[in-house]
Write a protein that binds this DNA or RNA. Structure first.
Length: 130
DNA sequence: TTCCTGACTCCAG
DNA sequence: CCTGGAGCCAGGA
């Protein structure tokens, strides 16, 4: 039982002014997503990788979950999984919202998957240079 | 505090 | 081709 007291860390921080953490990761995710060109799509893993946390693709999805209430607007519909599947469609106002938005931008969907995903794929590490 | 879940991905069978 | 488990880490119960 290594029951340590957290008090030993309390003096480490004096920034009692800031109740919240920095949330830089989420903000970075939103910024990258906003850079995805219209008519193109990216993946959770690609974004995570670009931000240096390759193994945290799930966190990108988690960030998208809260992206709807973030301003400026975040085009979350342009983020799909590595296979081009619209795994996040159920998190939009309607189950077809994501697909409709993409089609409006020229990205065709079939069976919940982006058609010709390979050519529509936008890799931040490659496009933004790394 | 601990435990569980997830808009993911990789790897082994 | 499909399935399951591990690693990731922020929140909610």
């Amino acid at each position: 039982m290594i029951k340590k007291s957290s008090s030993q860390y309390t003096q480490l921080k004096e920034d009692s002014v800031k109740p919240k953490k920095e949330f830089t990761f989420f903000e970075d995710v939103y910024e990258v997503v906003r850079l995805i060109p219209k008519g193109r799509v990216s993946s959770y893993g690609a974004i995570a990788s670009y931000l240096g946390t390759k193994l945290s693709a799930r966190m990108v999805g988690w960030a998208m979950n809260a992206a709807h209430q973030v301003r400026p607007k975040v085009p979350a519909h342009r983020v799909v999984n590595r296979n081009g599947m619209l795994t996040g469609k159920h998190h939009f106002s309607t189950p077809t919202e994501m697909e409709v938005l993409l089609k409006k931008e020229g990205v065709l969907i079939e069976n919940d998957t982006v058609i010709d995903f390979k050519s529509k794929f936008w890799d931040p590490s490659k496009e933004l240079g790394m």
